[in-house]
Design a protein around this nucleic acid. Sequence first.
DNA 1: GCGCAGGGGGTCG
DNA 2: CGACCCCCTGCG
Length: 265
Amino acid sequence: MKYKINQEDFDLEQTLDCGQCFRFVKKEDYFEGMAFSKILKIKRDGDFIELDCDEKDFEEIWKNYFDFDTNYAIIKRELENFSPIMKDAINFAPGIRILKQDPWEALCSFIISQNNNIPRIKGIISRLCENFGEKIGEFYSFPKPEKIASLTAQDLEPIKSGFRAKYILDAAKTATQTDLNQIYTMPIDEARAELMKIKGVGPKVAECVLLYGFHRTECFPLDVWMKRAMEVLFPQNKPEDFGLNAGIAQQYIFHYSRMNANLFD
DNA sequence: GCGCAGGGGGTCG
DNA sequence: CGACCCCCTGCG
């Protein structure tokens, strides 16, 4: 099916390859990947986005996943006023959107991301799915917390996650014993504290999970790149200064900084 | 080419 | 504040 959206408000590469998700792959003229146990091929066709799914899956899954109900043009216009550098960052990749990912998958993925690089993060996640997910077509679903919670660190050896294995298990145990959905509506500091009870979840991972998994857009993950970017580009500012859409601002700044690494030489 | 440090989207002890 | 699993990168 097709969905109309302006080029400047949604770019597949900028959105799916900006480090917020790890299970979409760029093919010739489309992206292919999986979320919520559904396979999706998606491509740009002029002013439209073409998704190989029916209306039902679009309404129930993908519309929400790509945050199509949010008007990013308005958000960008507001953020642009923040400063000329902010405007540059937005205009560098105006097609970025913050995906609304499955909270459990985001939790697990960003635990894996710590002290790690993107190619290996993707490798570990794909081995996790191949070993413990369910086969769906040519793909494997992201394993449910119940499945992971039933495993031992030794069982996880084939995914080669190293010292993160015990963290993944602790996260799975937590996800089965408590209702993660409460975090959607918790006061933000409470939500942070709740996530940080999980082994292997510190401030940075918690912030990523809140932003990408729970769509708490006031969250502002500060990794080494963002810390550097803030020092150089926004020396006077703190994350809170960006307001309720700080997390979206962060994504433009992060991408801009990574793609223009020479700014920091 | 190939072998070997160095360090990576942090966190824990 | 050093170690951490493993792998990818860059350099000799």
